Amino acid sequence: MIELLVLILVALLVLIGGERGLFTMISLIWNLFVLAVLFVLMTWGLNPLVLTFIGCLLICSGTLFYQNGKNAKTISSFVSVVIIMLILFFFIYVMAYQSHTGGLNELMKNDDMIFYLSTDIHINMGSIGVAMILIGLMGAIIDTSIAVSSGVYEVYNNNRHLNGKELMKSGMSIGGDILGTTVNTLYFAYIGEALTLFVLFKNFHYTLSEIINSKAFFQEVICIVFSAIGCVAIIPVTAAVISYLLTNADKFKRYLDEDELFIEKK
């Protein structure tokens, strides 16, 4: 069934997306490869946080630059994603370690399969918890950032007289339009994944207090909250970066591929 689903996905990407769909598929394979290498290196004892940042940069650059080229939209999105991840890293690190979110939760410890596995793996599980949140955060904010930068790009491409302040206002407006659906997408994605968890809570007769203080529940909630915070915070950052880049195009022209936007203005 997995092979069938993968074939359907590949067929739809090629038939509907055409060349862009093919690039998307290659980018997806690249991202899976990076994650696989990331996990292997973690098991070798390398620092999970350093590996996660390097992996996120590789995934982000592959997703943005390979599929869409190096232009104002993708560079603005990449810079914005890095800024938000660096800002939120401190809060994620403190929250994860203070709450001991890493490692096996109480439901995993009661799983029969765990009795056949060794938990002495010599890896800092607190760092693994932070890495999990960072990877989820990156996936959420890339979509929001590229949506805002693409919108502002099109606005400026059709209204070259707009200044940075006006473009920033347009970016905030675009971000506000997509904010509700983005947060809801995150919410339902995580809730759908956690349905089994809620069934277990019901069968084990957890009280509301026990659910809120459950490690299994918190591990899901912290990913939702930080991803939502990142999606909100990246809107003004992306709007500011793309507005500055577009209105100061001549300063950055040498860093960009050939782009019709940077032809001499009419």
Rank of each mutant, 00 (worst) to 15 (best):
I121F: 05
I114E: 07
N110S: 07
C231F: 05
I211M: 07
I141E: 13
S127Q: 15
S99H: 08
N159D: 14
G45V: 00
L256N: 09
N157M: 06
A72F: 13
F53W: 10
A228H: 01
E220L: 01
S77H: 00
V37H: 00
L261M: 11
N31L: 03
F89M: 00
L137H: 06
L57V: 13
I141P: 08
P48T: 08
F53K: 10
L4G: 14
L200Y: 13
M125P: 02
G175L: 10
T52R: 02
M172L: 15
G180K: 02
K265P: 05
G126C: 02
G69S: 11
K109Y: 00
L64R: 08
I114Q: 09
A11F: 10
I263L: 09
I242P: 05
K253F: 03
M138G: 07
G164E: 08
R20I: 01
V225T: 07
L261R: 10
K165N: 10
T144N: 12
G151M: 06
E193Q: 13
D259L: 04
N110Y: 01
V14H: 08
V50Q: 05
I229N: 11
Y156K: 12
G139A: 01
N31A: 13
D143G: 13
F204D: 12
F89N: 06
N248S: 04
T43F: 10
F262P: 08
I121M: 11
W44R: 14
K169A: 12
F89G: 08
E220P: 04
N213S: 14
L167V: 01
M42A: 09
S80N: 07
K251I: 02
M25L: 13
D120A: 09
Y244L: 03
K169C: 05
I87W: 03
L197A: 05
N31I: 06
T74E: 11
F65P: 11
S149M: 04
L162S: 09
E166S: 12
K265M: 07
V199K: 15
A72T: 03
V221G: 05
F188V: 07
L5G: 14
N159E: 13
A72R: 12
I242C: 01
L38I: 00
N159S: 14
I75R: 04
E106A: 08
W30A: 12
G136M: 03
S227V: 02
L57R: 08
F115M: 05
I142Y: 00
I178D: 13
F262M: 11
V37C: 04
A233L: 15
Q219H: 00
K73G: 03
Y66L: 11
T144S: 15
S149Q: 10
N68M: 01
D257S: 09
L186N: 12
I191R: 04
V81N: 12
G18S: 04
G139T: 00
I224V: 10
I75L: 04
Y156M: 11
F252K: 01
S243G: 06
